[in-house]
Design a protein around this nucleic acid. Structure first.
Lengths: 206, 206
DNA sequence: GTCTATACTACGATAGAC
DNA sequence: GTCTATCGTAGTATAGAC
């Protein structure tokens, strides 16, 4: 489908070069079509950009439906189960950040975070909001003593451990002395994230 | 000084709009000079871009000389002292990420991480390398049982907690329900980072 | 050293053929 | 629905005046 092909290539280009750095001519050429197709299907460059954001949000939501399910019945869980679910979700995030398939749309999202536009709003409302709130519901079971705002902060900081694998990938590779993160490094990082998260979740409980 | 003014404004523009999205005309106009000054002083747009990277690396190095000092004699420390220094350094990073003055060059760096160019090499060699290795030396005292590669991974993951405050600032603000991170939110996040880091550093030790 | 003027290229949007 | 052709704008680089 032409629209999908245009969006896929556009996500890659926008993520790599930014909105201004990306040329609709290049996107059209790489899609094997004429530039005016973009005008026809999306109304212009900006319409295509927003369509990319919607496509990413929908893609994440579909691919991680199982993680979302793990958060729904948080209120009914006991603490050890909630801890295990938290660890599973964090590991799922880590895998997303490590997987090379996430590279294209991760670049798009990170770029939006630096200078949010309407596209960020769509990404947040489309998928991030539910994920953050669901994770906080689990954390509330694990750390019932924390007020809601602290739980939100904690959720984002734990998430930061996985985000660094994408947002500072170049530094992580340099630090580990590897040109890219292969299976060995991925396993090592996931294990360490798990141990760190466990320590954080059990911290203050003796 | 004209060169400095050009670089300051260029860092802001490059960080905000990316290399392609930034126009040398705009930079020159905002600096109150002619566009050809950029060609004269930096050889062109790319030369200016690399000069920005060097300027950022030097700036960070100067401003955080005290943090760097805290890492130098790691080998001679006992464990509790090393833990305290780690916490101090992480808090220092957190303050950098929280401080609005870091916004301009943080955007530049995060952008480079997504699609590294020659500028990233200069940033890494100029300042990141020493910081990461120094922090790892402290971690080696805290967790002598971990092999070097694990220490590197641990360092980057701990750093991720502070990075998220910049790289995903838009999401953090949304999650905390605030338009920007003020003093209240900053204090809350720093405290939580400290507690998380303490739990990680003491994890596995009973 | 800093400016103006200009050459050249590439951009996004759009009109109109098919 | 998809193409080609074209318009107006904006980009970098460069030559040359001062």
């Amino acid at each position: 489908m032409l629209q999908t092909r245009l969006i896929d290539i556009a996500i890659d280009q926008f993520g790599r070069l930014g909105f201004d750095g990306t040329s609709t001519r290049d996107i059209a050429r790489a899609s094997g079509t004429a530039m005016s197709s973009i005008t026809y299907h999306f109304g212009g460059k900006e319409g295509l950009y927003l369509a990319c954001a919607d496509h990413i949000a929908q893609g994440i939501r579909e691919r991680h439906a199982t993680s979302i399910d793990l958060m729904l019945d948080a209120g009914t869980l006991d603490r050890p189960t909630a801890v295990q679910r938290c660890l599973a979700i964090v590991d799922s995030f880590a895998q997303i950040m490590l997987h090379s398939g996430s590279e294209r749309w991760a670049r798009f999202i990170v770029r939006e975070q630096q200078a949010p536009t309407e596209a960020f709003e769509r990404l947040y409302q489309g998928v991030m909001k539910d994920m953050i709130e669901g994770f906080c519901a689990l954390l509330a079971v694990v750390k019932p003593e924390l007020p809601p705002l602290e739980l939100r902060a904690l959720a984002m900081l734990i998430f930061g451990q996985t985000l660094v694998l994408r947002a500072a990938r170049a530094s992580v590779c340099k630090a580990l002395g590897t040109p890219e993160l292969g299976d060995t490094e991925a396993q090592l990082l996931r294990n360490r994230i798990r141990e760190n998260s466990l320590a954080i979740l059990n911290g203050g409980i003796e």
